[in-house]
Amino acid sequence: MSGPLEGIKVVEMAGIGPGPFCAMMLADMGADVVRVTRPGDAPFGPANCDVNSRGKRTLVVDLKSSEGVAQVLALIENADVLVEGFRPGVMERLGLGPEVCLQRNPRLVFGRMTGWGQFGPLSHAAGHDLNYIALSGMLGAMGRHGEPPAPPLNLVGDYGGGAMMLAFGIACALVEASASGQGQVIDAAMTDGTALLGSLFYGMKGHGAWSARRGSNFLDGSAHFYDTYECADGKYVAIGSIEPQFYAQLLEALGLADDPAFARQQDKRQWPELKRRVAAVIATRTRADWVARMEGTDICFAPVLDMDEAPLHPHNVARRTFIEIDGVTQPAPAPRFSRTVPEVRHAPGQPHIDLAELLSQWQPEAS
Rank of each mutant, 00 (worst) to 15 (best):
A150P: 00
D187K: 03
G181V: 08
A261Y: 03
P151Y: 14
Q266E: 14
G183S: 04
S178P: 01
S216W: 04
A189T: 06
F225H: 11
P152G: 02
S123K: 10
Q265E: 13
A179S: 13
D187E: 08
L166P: 07
L139R: 02
F225N: 03
G208E: 06
F168N: 07
H145P: 02
V156M: 08
D227E: 09
P260K: 08
L135P: 00
R264L: 14
A126Q: 10
G137T: 11
A171H: 10
Y247V: 07
L256P: 00
H128T: 12
A173S: 14
L122C: 04
I170P: 07
R144A: 12
L251G: 01
V237F: 01
A126D: 09
L251K: 02
S216G: 05
D220P: 01
R144I: 08
G215E: 09
L256I: 08
G161V: 01
K205A: 15
Y247P: 02
Y236F: 15
V237C: 01
S199A: 15
L219I: 15
G215R: 11
F246P: 00
G206H: 12
P148C: 06
A126R: 14
G234K: 01
L135Y: 08
E230M: 08
D220E: 12
G255E: 08
D192N: 12
A261W: 03
E243Y: 10
G161C: 06
M190H: 04
L219A: 04
L197K: 05
V156H: 01
G157S: 13
D158A: 12
F168E: 03
G234F: 02
N131A: 04
L135R: 11
A150H: 05
P244M: 14
Y247R: 05
L174G: 09
Q249M: 13
M204Y: 12
G181Q: 06
H207C: 10
L197V: 02
I186H: 06
